[in-house]
Design a protein around this nucleic acid. Sequence first.
DNA 1: GTCTATATAATGATAGAC
DNA 2: GTCTATCATTATATAGAC
Lengths: 194, 194
Amino acid sequence: MTDTAQVNADDPVNRKALLDAAERLMLEEGYAAVTTRRVAARAGLKPQLVHYYFESMDQLLLDLVRRATAHGRDTLARVLASPKPLRRLWEWSTDTEATALQIEMMALGNHRKAIRAELADGARRLRRMQVDALSEALERSGIVDDVTRTDALMMVLASVSRVLVMEKSLGVTAGHRNVRALVEHYLDRLESGS
Amino acid sequence: MTDTAQVNADDPVNRKALLDAAERLMLEEGYAAVTTRRVAARAGLKPQLVHYYFESMDQLLLDLVRRATAHGRDTLARVLASPKPLRRLWEWSTDTEATALQIEMMALGNHRKAIRAELADGARRLRRMQVDALSEALERSGIVDDVTRTDALMMVLASVSRVLVMEKSLGVTAGHRNVRALVEHYLDRLESGS
DNA sequence: GTCTATATAATGATAGAC
DNA sequence: GTCTATCATTATATAGAC
């Protein structure tokens, strides 16, 4: 699959700089802060260059989302290739920055068809990779579960990690320590070895 | 508690109309669409009236969030007063519109201190009410669990319902049917009677 | 409380020189 | 590819008449 690896292979320097600036802006100040002038200022470039590299602001945002979903797939593939894939998956999913960006993009995509489609496709692919990993881990550990429960379980893990990050960034941590302990206890049972 | 009941008691008609318009706009087109002119246009009023009723757009947004959190508390109180509080809570939490608005406001609050504080306070209060309800239900059903697990369990329920709604609005439904069945089976065990 | 009129800044985008 | 210059549009917000 040539589109998952080498995400920024042939990206001109300034184009990449603009996307990086847009990503930082979105993360720090929200998607509404991603404007022509502010993106350019952050990249240390002239605003007109934004229109040279991108057809429109909508296109820049879509390209940004595409880059992020592709990067997410690359990272997840690396995560799942580790000795304890579920443990590493849990750590990655509860990583604040990566998930915070996802949430902002989801709010953005809520009202832009093309972006929503890209996010949905990205989410489906990630979920499939995750379910496969959980399924293998269950088999390996001897706790062979049926497909139905595996599916549901992955959904629970994905949901809890996401909301943990959302609430943490909000300043709400009620129940977090307890649910973390619960999940980590479960993961330890699945991946017990060193 | 005078602040939880009668949320819009002494609200002038046009002020309420503006808040309603802002809420619909935020829901349908995102927080970036909540501008002076568009809010006014949707309410069928002149843009200048926005500034008459609200000190600034930031203040309008904050007032909107306050009204929504207060309304959420009222609704939750009613939900939890029903014969099957957990079942009704689950139904309410997986209701698309109410949760979609919460998500949009969370994205908005991510970058505005006052709004984030209001959302955090609102979320903490809701969670406390929910944990209490779950705790009571566990006791009533005889499945008396320790505080630690009750806390974690409520966090799981809240997380799954929220992500179910987020993903559904995105068009992703992988694992939804299965996790719903899992949760509903559990809730049935807790609240078995008619 | 609602109106007309207006100030001021930021927005996305384009034309054309180099 | 990058620049200067500029456009039309929209944004928040205010002053003052009624």
